[in-house]
Nucleic acid binder design. Structure first.
Lengths: 150, 150
DNA sequence: GTAAAACCTCAAGTAAACTTGAGGTCAAGA
DNA sequence: TCTTGACCTCAAGTTTACTTGAGGTTTTAC
């Protein structure tokens, strides 16, 4: 009993996932997904590529860069096609950073509430802009939230 | 009694806000902030530029593009330096989209929880990847969350 | 068997948000 | 005064995540 493998063409994967063919090429070039080729050199994907693409897109929604996603993939034992339990770990980790992001935004929201309340956004008082309660003196010193590059 | 205006040099604004001098130049070129010049053609900023920069940085944290921020600024009557009540409106609006973003991420988080629970991320079952409860058929059709460009 | 649709590669282009560099001017302190 | 640090302009470079295009091959449908 041979296991019949259903393979997908790039166009099928594209339609199935909503991700452009050119993007699939790009992901492959970047080492995020892989494919086999048929006799005519056309890409043929195993179904699990859909998993990978889902994870990529989900992670991007969370603000994870492709580079980081690739690292996560590569950290999987033997860089094998991830198993269910690998996915569990991934989901768990991303759940954590998602939670952190949510909390960060909630803090920001609450600070915005303060600002709306006080109508301030003033340099010396506003929490949002002066999160460490640093009060402006004549001398300088950074006052905004430190923010990574976006 | 003349109103003494304290003006800031670009270096001072940079240190005060944590935003690089080159970025301040860039924001000015893009029409997000403005400055006067002293006799020697050096930039001199009115204190309210700090407000603008705060708003820019805050909005960016919320995922608002510079273009959008500029539009908001320009929508202010006479493109004047925003007043306290202008800021209230801005804060309110941004508070709304912040809330939406939080809710979106919370949904994502809860769906991730489901995935962790079921260990799936499977094509046919996973909520996260199949948010509309579209069950995979043999025929294609996009399955991922629609996502704007990032 | 043939035409159209789908696929291939590789290079170059795009957009946002900045940064870097070259070449030169201005200002403040010893 | 002189030197050093802060400033100036303008052009070009950088990064991420893709898209577009040219020129050619393969597959599929009639």
């Amino acid at each position: 009993m041979t296991k019949e493998k259903i393979l997908w063409s790039v166009g099928q994967v594209s339609e199935r996932t909503g991700v452009a063919v050119s993007t699939l090429h790009y992901y492959e070039k970047e080492g995020l997904i892989s494919s086999r080729r048929n006799a005519g050199n056309q890409r043929r994907y195993e179904p699990n590529v859909l998993r990978r693409i889902s994870v990529i897109k989900t992670a991007q929604t969370l603000g994870v860069s492709l580079r980081e996603i690739k690292n996560v993939f590569q950290a999987l034992p033997n860089n094998r096609t991830p198993t269910t339990s690998d996915w569990k770990k991934l989901s768990s980790n991303w759940r954590k950073s998602l939670q952190q992001r949510i909390e960060q935004l909630e803090r920001l929201r609450d600070q915005l509430d303060d600002c709306i309340g006080c109508g301030c956004l003033s340099i010396k008082k506003c929490n949002l802009r002066n999160p460490e309660d640093i009060v402006a003196k004549d001398g300088p010193g950074p006052v905004l939230l430190k923010q990574g590059k976006r």
